[in-house]
């Protein structure tokens, strides 16, 4: 979205073509099956769009799509996943102006600040892209056991991760999604409730970056409605509660997650402009250890 498309009244000679903001599930852009939407306004209070208000059924569909995508994505070579993450960075860089304009409009950022945010998001993607074929070396181990055995530990993706994204709709979103998927997980993301539009625009970037459909699924809507259902979903392996601001909702989600022993990353409010460490990746990694006798 840009200022130009808003200024219908100023240029009656041609009516702008607005974008319908939909969900991103399985590589496609469906509306919510519920037919619901919610009004998204700018920080100044102007109407911006009717965003899709995803239902719990949409969330279940998204989990199905993520599960379906998991074998292919986790089985892809780390090199391949790294290239695709880098490709996402390229696509985002190419749309820099669009995202700057959108962040200015929906988030009330200054143009300078919005530009820095988009740059940081691109750089974050590049940073994580490089980890795809290094995390195994950093988090794996050749274990010196006391016996004639080959013994090797390697990190593996946990599976389907449900992510409640932070309010920061671009840099925050990129900073929670990239570490989840770079290692081979697939995810269902509940986008920033307050600023959903840049997240769906980011989905357009993802959709044109050779990222297989279903690896990242993005839902817009009410966090309090969507998060508990995902936390309780028996085919979700892990839960990232980073964006859950309400401690009571976070506790409830963590309780629901206990039912199938989901790995839970608890809420936090990091400074997204700071270079991260590897803990957002390791939170969603399993360690697999393989033994084999040594002999002739």
């Amino acid at each position: 979205m840009s200022k130009a498309s808003r200024s219908d009244a100023e240029r009656p000679s041609r009516l702008a073509v607005r974008k319908t903001y939909k969900l991103f599930i399985g590589g496609a852009f469906p509306r919510s099956e519920s037919g619901r939407s919610y009004v998204v306004s700018s920080t100044k209070g102007d109407f911006l769009a009717n965003a899709s208000r995803a239902s719990r059924k949409d969330a279940r569909d998204a989990v199905s799509a993520a599960r379906k995508a998991f074998p292919g994505w986790s089985g892809a070579t780390p090199y391949n996943r790294g290239q695709i993450l880098y490709r996402i960075a390229e696509m985002l860089e190419g749309r820099r102006a669009q995202f700057v304009a959108e962040l200015v409009e929906v988030g009330g950022l200054s143009a300078k600040k919005a530009g820095e945010t988009v740059d940081a998001a691109v750089d974050r993607l590049v940073w994580y892209a490089g980890w795809s074929d290094k995390i195994g070396a950093v988090r794996g181990a050749a274990n010196p056991v006391a016996g004639p055995y080959f013994n090797l530990s390697t990190p593996e993706p946990t599976g389907v991760v449900a992510v409640v994204a932070p309010e920061d709709p671009l840099l925050g979103l990129v900073s929670v999604v990239a570490p989840v998927v770079v290692t081979g997980n697939t995810c269902v993301v509940v986008a920033s409730e307050r600023f959903p539009l840049p997240s769906i625009t980011l989905a357009e970037v993802l959709a044109t970056s050779d990222l297989p459909g279903g690896v990242v699924n993005i839902l817009t809507g009410r966090t309090a409605e969507l998060a508990p259902g995902l936390a309780a979903h028996m085919d979700v392996n892990a839960l990232d509660l980073t964006g859950v601001g309400d401690p009571e909702l976070a506790r409830r989600c963590e309780e629901e997650a206990a039912e199938n022993l989901k790995r839970v990353l608890r809420p936090s409010t990091p400074d997204w402009t700071v270079e991260p460490d590897i803990t957002r990746m390791t939170a969603f990694l399993e360690t697999k250890t393989v033994w084999h006798p040594v002999g002739i």
Partner: peptide, 23 residues
């Protein structure tokens, strides 16, 4: 699975990580 024993089983060692996936 967190531990895969190939051509052996139920081997343990303090240097070797042990623990599970899923439930």
């Amino acid at each position: 699975a967190g531990v895969v024993w190939a051509n052996t089983f139920n081997k343990f060692d303090p240097a070797s990580p042990f623990g599970g996936y899923k439930e």
